[in-house]
Amino acid sequence: MNNRQETPKEKRERLRQQELKKNPGGALRDGFSRGETGNLTDLTGGMGWKGTGILIVVLVVGYVLYKLLF
């Protein structure tokens, strides 16, 4: 057997996969409600600090361009 420690990300994914197998309907409903409400943590949770920084820069530049043009 492999002695390598499981990372938190791998553990979350393994638990998510187990939940999908046990209750596919509930997982689908959770996905829909998460998609409706959404939050910044879900958006940036999968990105690293570089991706989050680029997202912030794009949002700020987009807002400035919008204000300049309209």
Rank of each mutant, 00 (worst) to 15 (best):
M1S: 11
N2H: 06
N3S: 11
N3Q: 09
R4L: 09
R4M: 11
R4A: 14
Q5A: 15
E6G: 03
K11F: 04
K11S: 10
K11W: 02
R12C: 01
R12K: 10
R12G: 01
E13D: 09
E13K: 13
R14T: 06
L15I: 10
L15P: 02
L15S: 10
L15N: 14
L15D: 15
L15C: 02
R16N: 07
Q17T: 11
Q17W: 03
L20G: 03
K21T: 11
K21Y: 05
K22Y: 05
K22Q: 15
K22T: 13
K22P: 00
N23K: 09
N23P: 02
P24A: 00
G25P: 01
G25R: 06
G26V: 03
G26Q: 07
A27K: 12
L28P: 00
R29S: 08
R29H: 07
G31V: 03
G31P: 04
G31T: 09
F32A: 13
F32E: 08
F32T: 08
S33W: 05
S33F: 07
S33V: 13
G35N: 08
E36S: 09
E36M: 12
E36V: 10
E36R: 13
T37Q: 11
T37P: 02
G38F: 00
G38N: 01
G38C: 01
N39G: 15
T41Y: 02
T41H: 06
D42I: 00
T44K: 00
G45P: 00
G46P: 02
G46E: 00
G46Y: 00
M47T: 06
M47F: 08
G48P: 01
G48E: 02
W49K: 11
W49G: 02
K50F: 11
K50C: 02
K50Y: 05
G51H: 04
G51K: 01
G51I: 04
G51T: 04
G53L: 10
G53V: 02
I54A: 11
I56K: 06
I56D: 05
V57M: 09
V57F: 09
V58L: 15
L59N: 10
V60F: 13
V60D: 04
V60G: 05
V61G: 05
V61M: 10
G62T: 13
G62M: 06
Y63S: 12
Y63E: 08
Y63P: 03
Y63I: 13
V64G: 12
V64Y: 12
L65C: 12
L65G: 15
L65K: 13
L65R: 12
L65A: 15
Y66H: 14
Y66M: 14
Y66S: 14
K67M: 13
K67C: 04
K67H: 12
K67T: 14
F70L: 09
F70E: 06
F70P: 02
